[in-house]
Design a binder for these strands. Structure first.
Lengths: 332, 332
DNA sequence: GACATCACGGTAATCGTTTACATCCCCGGC
DNA sequence: GCCGGGGATGTAAACGATTACCGTGATGTC
């Protein structure tokens, strides 16, 4: 069927060992022989069988990734960055989704391990119930948690410094003249939600006027709507700045404010978090904290690469500082 | 290192052949033996080596997919649907992106074939220059083009019936009272752009008042802006219905109309195509033609599955009828 | 000229399964 | 009682690379 290295070797007049050496790296082979092997391979249109190579060399040159979903533009962009980064190193990417179900997630991780991926990248879908599977995986291959992480740490992690991001947003709002603030975020069911909430609480003292309104729901547009309505109940006490836990919530808030004729940023300023593609398309365009996705992906892949090349601490935790992107939903 | 089937067989007191049979399918093994093998496997925490199985059985239980990009929400949703469908059949998904570069695409396809994927799904990034690589791939494994296709056909394809979709949009606009129409789409550089344009031209006779304004650019928000500005140059001749080639363009058009104080759907009705997640978040929410992504994915995977199970025509072309989703950017 | 060193190349073992083939046993039909 | 058939099992040969190990000849050094 397919042409094998044996036939290439035969045509080149060398042994399979030499052919193999010539095709991969080519060290320890006389240039003349190397040439002949390469030529033979081209003439026969030889396609190396990566499966056989993987079996013998015990390395598949592929990494597995598990994310909650891909249709979420945030994860999509993340996966894209990881794919590009992996491809650059000649690594294939095996993609799975957990659909926010720890059981599914565990199954996917196991399937990836059966396929003998060299390393794993996972966005744990639950800060508690993802633990067992992810730690088990970490026993077998280098594993890095991306974006979200397990409660209480454990294993490598690469993510954004949420607290610094929220702090930047708060500083910006205060500098823009906001005297009262509110936070609309998600219940701290995952590590990001927790960190952003902590960030808000930590930054609160910067705003002298008052920062005590904290509304927690989930990371959805609907929650943004509802929270905004709640803040609108008493028009007089409407805060001058609303810090949102992510962009989706912020879009919901913006929309509800627009419906009720509240001027943004005139009467209220709004900030988001993530900088999803639609943030700049909102009306008005949303000031937000941009996740440096490319950097996150690069860092994650690099972490795995160094772990594979040998040693390095298995508990590397990298928090990358995000960047505030100022748009029209706030005053400079 | 890892426990092998040999050790499982030993512990169960049977030969490796029997162990293998028991673990995969279990046909032709006495129930008692099957039980013992399964128990031994569980006790030893046996993890089958899919690489070895793949080498011997010449099937990797994995499909490769190449899309132009994942950060495009349309492709992201498509990939997600394919992943789910593949996972259901126990197939892994190897993901690659072409970044709209036929060279990159060809390289990715080759890499996937080296990895011996059982089948391929590709969204060709160019209707001409993708041909060689995709047809070459099709020689080796079942390959299906998804969404986009090569010029002039060739190979299997699963996509949406663009012409029917545009027709539905036009009918809807005419039924809603539009007397004049315009089309804002992309130059026909890919098969979808072509089909949508053809669809508009085919449906034109339905609108007695006039349908001759056809503006072609690319599938971007900016083009939507520019096209809308051009239509606004002569306010009096502003068409009563604007059919857009995709949602992104439509969002651009909507925005420009809003900036110029044109009422939607009062003065002008607008339709999109695709139903990306943000379509319903637009202001007003966008009436659009929904791509049945789940169905497309399922059909693509099914096509490959039947091809793998043996025979079936290699030239299956499936066009699925899309559904019109009516929202507030048009009158019912 | 003897010997250590070195670069290169070949032979064959190996990775961990699946599966072709042979064997064995049991059962039913004649 | 013999034979054919079929199901369960074992033996061993694949699958197609990589690589440990060893042999060979060239080279350098004393």
């Amino acid at each position: 069927m397919s042409v094998t290295i044996r036939e290439v070797a035969e045509r080149a007049g060398v042994s399979v060992a030499t052919a193999s050496r010539a095709l991969s790296g080519g060290r320890g082979v006389r240039p003349a022989n190397r040439e002949r092997v390469l030529r033979a391979a081209k003439e026969l249109d030889y396609e190396p069988n990566a499966v056989a190579a993987a079996l013998r060399s015990r390395t598949t040159n592929s990494v597995g990734i598990v994310v909650p979903r891909i249709s979420n533009p945030f994860f999509a962009t993340l996966v894209e960055a990881v794919e590009r980064e992996a491809a650059r190193g000649g690594q294939g990417l095996l993609l799975s989704t957990s659909r926010y179900d720890p059981e599914v997630e565990a199954g996917q991780l196991r399937a990836l391990l059966d396929r003998r991926v060299d390393a794993l990248i996972a966005v744990p879908c639950h800060s508690e119930r993802s633990r067992a599977a992810i730690e088990a995986a970490g026993q077998r291959v280098p594993t890095v948690q991306l974006d979200l992480c397990l409660d209480g740490g454990g294993g490598s992690w690469v993510g954004v410094d949420s607290e610094a991001g929220i702090l930047a947003a708060v500083e910006h709002l205060v500098a823009g003249g906001a005297r009262t603030l509110a936070y609309v975020g998600s219940e701290p069911t995952d590590s990001s939600a927790q960190a952003r909430l902590d960030g808000y609480r930590g930054a609160a003292p910067l705003c002298p006027g008052g920062t005590d309104r904290v509304l927690l729901g989930d990371f959805s547009l609907e929650w943004g709507h509802r929270a905004a309505r709640r803040l609108l109940e008493n028009r007089r006490e409407l805060p001058e700045g609303i810090v949102c836990g992510n962009d989706t919530i912020a879009l919901g808030v913006l929309r509800e404010l627009a419906r009720n004729g509240v001027e943004v940023p005139g009467r209220v300023m709004v900030t988001g978090f993530d900088d999803i593609p639609f943030a700049e398309l909102a009306e008005p365009p949303l000031t937000t904290v941009r996740q440096p996705l490319e950097q996150l992906a690069a860092e994650a892949v690099r972490t795995l690469a160094t772990r594979l090349r040998g040693g390095e601490e298995p508990h590397r935790r990298v928090a990358i500082a995000p960047e505030l992107v100022v748009r029209a939903s706030t005053r400079a």
